[in-house]
Write a protein that binds this DNA or RNA. Sequence first.
DNA 1: GTCCGGATCTTT
DNA 2: AAGATCCGGACA
Length: 187
Amino acid sequence: MEFSPKLLSSDFFSQKTEKIAADLLGKVLVRRVGNKEISGIIIETEAYLGTQDKACHSHKGLTPRTKVMFGPAGRWYVYLVYGMYYCLNLVTEPEGNPCAVLIRALKPISGVAPSIKADGPGKLCKAFQVNGAFNNKEADNLNSGLYLQGQDISLLPREIKKAKRVGVDYAGERWKNRLLRFYTEKF
DNA sequence: GTCCGGATCTTT
DNA sequence: AAGATCCGGACA
């Protein structure tokens, strides 16, 4: 009982993208590789709001890469940036509304050496051995090897900070300045 | 087929 | 401040 992981339910995934981005703070990402487990608390995320959001990959419509985002919520969207780093996202919103939440930073709990950092979208994927193979896999499935877990603690509103998203200055005034980045200093 | 730029990170 | 490194998307 006390060791059974509490996977996030479909209720969680059916919330609005911005709500999910904020609520993911404090949740635990678990990577199972063989009989080892790598885990960490999510401390920074960003919301990407679909076809109208010029910073969102899906804003140009359905393409091979963005296909996952058009699917149901609760799956992983993993892509390669700058030719060498993977970024891990959680797909949100009902089918046909291609939104996602980028997981930007984790505080490692177990399975990673203290010298290894997970304080950036590319770095956390490296530390957690996340690659394109997880694209379109379910985030609430123990067998996928990469899943989300809830915790009993929940953050107070004032423990959730908001900021502009990183690296999206090309998105135009309206979208580059929106406070769609969420982070906490609690952990 | 060719070209351009990027939801990053490390090193200088 | 610049380099690493390569895929996706636009255009032809």
